[in-house]
Every structure is written in structure tokens, then in C-alpha cells.
Design a protein around this nucleic acid. Structure first.
Length: 591
DNA sequence: ACTTAATGTCATTGA
DNA sequence: GCTCAATGACATTAA
């Protein structure tokens, strides 16, 4: 037997015995002995209490921080969004810079103990400085009256020290102060309220990682990212003033921030917006982009920028949303099920579709004979679109437009919007209809790929004779025939399936109706049976009373009544009634 | 992540 | 033997 490790005074011997018994019972269930240890449980309880307290403290802290954040925002009643409160009187920049400089100079040791408010103030002051180039240069000179103005064009490609001298050292700080400022910035960025800023800076780092050949040399130096530090952003405009605008993205970033963010005190949201004006193709034209940077931005826009991430700072609202116009194919790829995401619809030519539906037998044929896919109609092809009134020219389509585009717009007019620039949102509300359209469009596109001169509608719905007649007018290769066959089969089967399901549903409804009827019938019969049983029992009762009445009136030769235990009245088929002794009856039966 | 309904598609069967 | 409709089974998609 194991000894219990808890102090005996706390528990009586009876308790211990009980615990032992219980524990033995629970051993199979994997319960350890500690479960019964009172001290252990007490410790656990204390731990839980401590955890709870800590959680509450954290929640309270979070609430306070949220309050502080909301205090800087005001609710836009129209949009329901929180927008930053515009400060009516911008702080005098020289005063701010002086305050900043003195705060750093006077209290170098206090840099690590910045309160949140101080951090906010420094931030606001900092970005106030970056309002205009002039201001920034003033600020620069205010901050560093004796420092030579950095005019090195290759400041980004220079060594880290020179970068620091040109950017970070805009504050009268030599090595020590520089480190302290960097640490202060780290602290600033670690504040929850500023995480958005931090994230965006991270994003900018990602953006700057793009393989712009010219920027590669720059990005190799880790310190060159220091331009992301708003302090260095202050210095940038100054350098732009000294005609250092290079062709790389970094410069466009730095120059665009002050150009957009005019006279507005810094806040996180506008900062995000400013950043995204770089990404927004509609806004980039305000930035002196070169071909190179434009190309870079296009790459960013088309391939790798995660819009959902960017939307965090509401930079990508409706007006800023990139447009995903149809390609020149004109075929509404948007209706394809593959085009549900904008990224997939980019470059949405039917041939670009990554998993374009070639899974059918005809598509296997196409694989084996790729020329079949692009095959022109045979020589004896009558111009397929002269006879077939199906392909009437749409007013939207030019004469040289592929007839299948016309089909796409014209023929199933009920299914595909008749707009060549079909910019309907890919997430349409009428989902079921949209899906039908998509399915229909798939066969339509397959038919287009194989240059089949009939509409899917005709292939499916023409009667056999007309269909055969129509087919006899053209010569088709194997793949085309297979596709036409498949389209017709699928189309027919689709209708058949729809009819089948309709019938099935009707059958189900009919059966349910029958079931209801039968249930009603059953209820009715049950109630009838109950009524009959009732009347039967009543008649039995009456018969019993009548029987007794008659039996009681019978008397033997001595005038004594017969005992009902010894005799009974029985009736023959003829209707005669006899008094039969019960014992005799039994004996007769036995015989 | 899972369920459900709607729909399309394929394979099979019988007329 | 071919066509066609009917139907079960499975896949896909969106809600």
C-alpha cells in the first residue's frame, strides 16, 4: 500500500481509507493519486486564479488601448467607418523638432522608457515633419544645423554608415544616440496600436524585395531598408530635392508619401493609404515613375500582391479595386467556373485557362493531334456563319470578331450578358443561373476551340433529321464529331436528368399525398373499429342481463330456482332453448 | 470544416 | 444495332 503524502491532520484515517478505495477503483480509468491530494488541488486552484487575474488584466489593458485608439478616431455616420480626427492646428514644426531634439538630447537615458503617449507624440511629430520637402529640409536643418546636406546620388547604394549619416542621423546624434533612436523605434513599433504601421513596413519590405534589377544591389544591404524608418523618410524628400530621384521603387515610395500626405498629421491609417497609393494603378501616375518602376508595379499588381492583405487598411475599396477586364478574346471567361477569383480571370483567354475542360474524349484527341484544336474548317466548309442565322452580328462586335464570340453574346442571349466588356462582378447574386451559364459556356468554348460552326443550342435541340441534315453540310474530323456527339449527348441527358428529377419530385409529392390519404383512411378505420367494439360490448352486456333474467325465472318441479353454476341455457340452430346441466355437458364433451 | 441542395455528367438499361 | 429516354450514381459548386 502506498503512503499518502498529505499531512495527516488534514484528513482523518477514514478519509484516507476512502481515498484509497476510490483510487483503486479509478486506477483503471487512468486517474492518478494526485487527484485526491488536497494540497495539489489547492495549488492548482491558486494557479488558475492567478491565470484568471492575469487574463483580466490583459483584457482591461487591451480595452484601454482600444479606447485610446478610438479617441483618435471619429465615426463617419455615412459610411460607418472610423476615420481619423483631423487636427485643426498642426503643430509648429520647428517647435516639434526642437522638442524632439531636446527630448532626445536631454534625456538620452529615458529613451527606453517612453510612454505610449510620448511615442504617439514623437510619431505624430515625426510625420508632421515629412509634410513637404521644404518643411523636411527645414526640419533637417533644424535638427542638424551643422551637418552637411547629403547630396550623394547613390546614397542608397553607399555603405550603411553613409546611409545612416544621410538618413537616420538627421538627429544630432552620433553612434550612441543613433542606437538609442533605433531602439526607440523598435519600441515604438512593438506597441500594439502601431502594429498596423509595423505590418505595412513589413509589407513594404516585401514589396521592395521584388526583383527589380536595379534595386537588387540596393536591397542586398540590410541597412538600406532604413528608408522605411519614418525618420529616414523625413530625410528622403530633401534628397529628392537635390535631384537624387532614382528609378527604383524605393525612391518613388519615399517621394510619394509626402506628396500625397499633404498637411495632414500623421496617423496610421493615412499612412497606410499613402502607401497604397503607390500600389493603386490609378494613383501611380502622380508619382514620377519610370518604365522600370512601372513595370515593377505591374508585376506587383498582376502577380504577387495579396489584395486581401492590402485591404486591411481599406486602401482597396471599390474605387481602388483593380479592374479585371476581359481579355481581347471577348469570350466571357468570367462566367466560367474557373474565373471565380480575380486572379484567375486575369489574362482570361480561353487558351490560358489552366485547367480548361479538355477531359472529354475529344479533348484526348486534341492532345494527340494538337493541330486539330486550331484546325481551320475544311475547304468545303461553307462559310459557317452566312447560313446559320444563329450568328447574327451583335452590335457590340466588330466584323472581324470571331463568330464564336458572337455566339457567346448572341445565341444564348438569355444566358450570357450581351456586353463585350462584360464587367459583371464575378460574384453574381444569381448563383444558380450563373452556374448554368458557366456550364453552358464550357461547351460553347469547347465548340469554339474546335471551330464547330453550330451553336450548342442547335446541336442539342435540333430533331434528329434536322441535325443529321445540318451535319451533312460540313465535314468534321474525329475530334469535332466526338465533341458534337458529346455536346448533344450531354445536352440531351441534361434535359433528361432535369425531367427525371422533376418527375422524381412529382412522384415523391404524389407518394406523400397518397401517404397522407392512407393515414387518414387508417385513422378513420380505427375509429370505426372502436365504435363497433363499443356497440359489441354493449350488446354483450344486454345479452348477459337478458340471460340472467330468463334463467332466474326458471324453476324445477319443486319450485326451486336452478343454480347458474350447475345449469346453463343453450340455443339450438332451430331456435329452441334447452336447459343443460354443466357437468353433463362436460361429460358429453369428454365422450 | 462540414452539410446540404442543386445541377451536370456518365454508365447502364429498356423500349 | 442504333437512338433515345430514363435513371442511378457520382462529382462539382455554392450556400
Amino acid at each position: 500500500m502506498m503512503e499518502i503524502e498529505i499531512p495527516l491532520p488534514l484528513q482523518s484515517q477514514q478519509d484516507l481509507d476512502l481515498i484509497d478505495i476510490l483510487w483503486k477503483q479509478d486506477i483503471d480509468l487512468g486517474v492518478s493519486r494526485e487527484v485526491f491530494d488536497y494540497n495539489q488541488r489547492q495549488k492548482e486552484n491558486e494557479l488558475e486564479k492567478q491565470k484568471k487575474l492575469e487574463k483580466e488584466r490583459q483584457e482591461q489593458l487591451q480595452k484601454e488601448q482600444e479606447k485610446a485608439l478610438y479617441a483618435q478616431l471619429q465615426l463617419d455616420e455615412e459610411t460607418g467607418e472610423f476615420i481619423p480626427v483631423q487636427q485643426a492646428t498642426p503643430i509648429e514644426t520647428t517647435e516639434v523638432t526642437q522638442a524632439l531634439a531636446t527630448s532626445i538630447q536631454d534625456k538620452p537615458s529615458a529613451v527606453h522608457e517612453l510612454s505610449f503617449d510620448e511615442c504617439l507624440k514623437i510619431l505624430a511629430d515625426t510625420f508632421q515633419l515629412g509634410i513637404t520637402n521644404e518643411d523636411s529640409s527645414i526640419a533637417y536643418q533644424t535638427l542638424q544645423p551643422n551637418a552637411p546636406i547629403e547630396t550623394n546620388q547613390n546614397f542608397l547604394q553607399s555603405d550603411p554608415n553613409s546611409v545612416a549619416a544621410g538618413t537616420l542621423s538627421s538627429i544630432p546624434a552620433e553612434g550612441e544616440n543613433l542606437n538609442e533612436i533605433n531602439q526607440a523605434w523598435e519600441e515604438l513599433l512593438s506597441i500594439p496600436e502601431l502594429q498596423c504601421l509595423n505590418n505595412e513596413i513589413d509589407n513594404m519590405v516585401d514589396l521592395s524585395m521584388y526583383p527589380n534589377p536595379e534595386s537588387i544591389t540596393m536591397t542586398e544591404s540590410p541597412d538600406t531598408y532604413s528608408f522605411l524608418n519614418p525618420l529616414s523618410a523625413i530625410a528622403k524628400p530633401h534628397e529628392i530635392n537635390t535631384s537624387v530621384v532614382s528609378n527604383d521603387f524605393v525612391d518613388t515610395f519615399a517621394s510619394s508619401v509626402p506628396s500625397v500626405n499633404t498637411n495632414a498629421p500623421f496617423n496610421v491609417e493615412t499612412f497606410c493609404d499613402d502607401i497604397f497609393t503607390l500600389v493603386d494603378p490609378k494613383v501611380t501616375n502622380i508619382v514620377p515613375l519610370t518604365n522600370n518602376s512601372g513595370q515593377l508595379l505591374n508585376e506587383l499588381l498582376n502577380d504577387n500582391v495579396d489584395i486581401t492583405d492590402l485591404s486591411l487598411c481599406k486602401a482597396f475599396n471599390g474605387s481602388n479595386q483593380p479592374e479585371f477586364n476581359d481579355s481581347d478574346s471577348g469570350v466571357s471567361v468570367n462566367t466560367s467556373p474557373c474565373a471565380t477569383s480575380p486572379s484567375q480571370s486575369i489574362g482570361g483567354s480561353a487558351f490560358d485557362e489552366p485547367h480548361y475542360g479538355y477531359s472529354d474524349s475529344d479533348m484526348e484527341d486534341m492532345d494527340s493531334t494538337p493541330e486539330a484544336a486550331q484546325q481551320k474548317p475544311p475547304d468545303n466548309f461553307i462559310a459557317p456563319f452566312t447560313e446559320d442565322t444563329y450568328f447574327t452580328l451583335s452590335p457590340f462586335v466588330s466584323q472581324d470578331t470571331d463568330p464564336f464570340e458572337i455566339e457567346a453574346y448572341d445565341s444564348p442571349a438569355k444566358e450570357i450578358p450581351a456586353s463585350p466588356g462584360y464587367s459583371k462582378a464575378p460574384f453574381a447574386k444569381d448563383k444558380s443561373l450563373n452556374r448554368q451559364e458557366a456550364r453552358f459556356t464550357r461547351d460553347t468554348q469547347r465548340a469554339k476551340v474546335l471551330n464547330i460552326p453550330f451553336s450548342v443550342d442547335k446541336i442539342v435541340n435540333l430533331p434528329v433529321d434536322s441535325f443529321n441534315e445540318m451535319m451533312s453540310k460540313y465535314q468534321f474530323n474525329e475530334a469535332q464529331l466526338a465533341l458534337i456527339r458529346d455536346i448533344r449527348r450531354r445536352g440531351k441527358n441534361k434535359v433528361a436528368a432535369q425531367n427525371c428529377r422533376k418527375r422524381k419530385m412529382e412522384n415523391i409529392v404524389e407518394l406523400e399525398t397518397d401517404l397522407d390519404k392512407l393515414k387518414y383512411e387508417k385513422e378513420k378505420l380505427l375509429s370505426e373499429r372502436g365504435a363497433y367494439n363499443n356497440s359489441l360490448s354493449q350488446m354483450k352486456k344486454k345479452l348477459g342481463t337478458l340471460y340472467m333474467e330468463v334463467f332466474n325465472k326458471l324453476q324445477d318441479e319443486n319450485g326451486k330456482p336452478y343454480s347458474p353454476h350447475e345449469y346453463s341455457l343453450q340455443q339450438t340452430k332451430e331456435g329452441n332453448i334447452f336447459l343443460v346441466p354443466k357437468t353433463k355437458k362436460v361429460s358429453i364433451k369428454k365422450e
